[in-house]
Amino acid sequence: MKTIEGRAWAYGANIDTDALAPIGSYSGTGDLSVGAGQCLRDLDPNFAKSVVEGDVFVATDNMGIGSSREMAPMFLHTLGIRCVLAHSFARIFYRNCFNIGLPALVCAEAGQIKMGDVIKVDPASGKVTNETQGTTYHASRSQNTSWGSSKPAA
């Protein structure tokens, strides 16, 4: 797989499928780009307008939580996102990403990436270079199954 290079769109935890693919944003009858224009409209209306091919989506915990709707990764892919980096992924979203050809990589340092940082990802080796910050991280395809709680122990 070739190296992916683009700007980071960095968000936080629990980016859910209702945010990624709002109900009513897609008809399933063809043109994905129409629905994709609604991607993250409630969280960051600028995202769908400004993202370009090769950009990297960055999140922290539990990326893609929610519905099984495949439009969530499809919209990201349609808009040009070529890799998703996150601390952890919700399981259906994770499998959907790979199935549609969008690498979803687990990166414990994803939270250090800032909006707009220029990011290079080599999906084969897992090397992530943050050109803006001059740092490197490691990303992997295997998910840890035992993060335990997303909330501090009660």
């Binding site: 629990n14 915990d61 539990n62 939580i65 952890s88 919700a90 399981r91 998910q143 199954t145 993060w147 335990g148 709680s149 997303s150 909330k151 009660a154």
Partner: peptide, 11 residues
Amino acid sequence: GEYGIMGFNYQ
């Protein structure tokens, strides 16, 4: 409330 929406991810 206690364990969060990823409290039992993959389990």
